[in-house]
């Protein structure tokens, strides 16, 4: 659980278009790393390269290295399916499976990984995951109801419960609160603070206050202009980035002068 990720000289292409250039960073375990930057600078692209979700787009490819503890995620024999079992993902729009109950949503990943699970074991993991996602008290009486009946914030926490039920090492979140109201956002932020005890968390956010509130490290991505690749300008401890960043671009962005 909670592994470190070392990214070295990562380039990401869509066909011949280079969307992200030469990113190197170390993502610390048991901490929240926030990625900020103007839209279109490749934050989502970069995040999805960390669990090889970008491979769903036929033209997308990467060059460079992503090493989790000592495992090269892009090693020739590495199966992207296995990578995603260890590096979970939460999306911008809550996406519980509409045909499944709350219980089945949480158990969905478990059933993939371990088909012969006993009912009592599944029960246990479902409860644990829902508790871990701060959702248990709200749904324990309606586990058999469809997950799509929950509020947006509850649905997003259900998706987090579903992601942590498979016990990943890393949790990637792409603007997990941008579709939520302030109260739900608060609930999810609280949850992140809890989850970082056990997981490595990487979150993309448009909201700089959120980055400041929830993260231990903040990376700033920027783009020179349209058609140019996105680049990592700097990454450091969050208080440092928000008080004394090294680059003026970072300072200008966080002080709201552009972006």
């Amino acid at each position: 659980m909670a592994k470190r990720i070392d990214v070295k000289d990562l380039d990401i292409y869509y066909g011949s278009f280079r969307a992200v250039r030469s990113v190197s960073m170390t993502i610390q375990p048991r901490a929240v790393t926030a990625l900020i930057g103007p839209s279109g600078c490749g934050k989502s692209t970069y995040l999805r390269a960390l669990n090889r979700m970008h491979e769903l787009i036929p033209s997308a490819r990467v060059e460079g290295k992503v090493v989790m503890d000592d495992q090269d995620l892009y090693a020739p024999g590495m199966d992207p399916v296995d990578v995603r079992k260890h590096v979970g993902m939460v999306f911008q729009r809550p996406n519980p499976f509409p045909t499944m109950s709350i219980y089945d949503n949480v158990a969905a990943g478990l059933r993939l990984n371990n088909k012969r699970l006993r009912k009592s074991e599944t029960d246990e993991v479902v409860e644990e995951s829902l508790r871990g996602a701060n959702l248990w008290e709200e749904v324990k009486d309606r586990l058999r109801k469809p997950g799509s009946g929950l509020s947006g914030g509850q649905q997003q926490r259900l998706c987090i419960a579903r992601a942590i039920a498979v016990r990943p090492d890393v949790l990637l979140m792409d603007e997990p609160c941008s579709a939520l109201d302030p109260i739900s956002t608060h609930a999810v932020e609280d949850l992140m603070a809890q989850l970082k005890e056990n997981y490595t968390i990487v979150i993309v956010t448009h909201n700089m206050q959120q980055a400041a509130r929830v993260s231990n490290y903040t990376g700033f991505f920027n783009i020179a202009g349209t058609g140019q690749p996105g680049e990592l300008v700097e990454i450091d401890e969050t208080p440092t980035i928000f008080s004394t960043p090294t680059h003026t671009a970072t300072e200008e962005y966080i002080s709201g002068r552009f972006g």
């Binding site: 995603r84 999306f91 499976f97 993939l112 998706c159 498979v166």
Partner: peptide
Amino acid sequence: PKLHEEASLALGA
């Protein structure tokens, strides 16, 4: 919906 396909793939399906 792409988002449901992605949801399951992200679980390691």
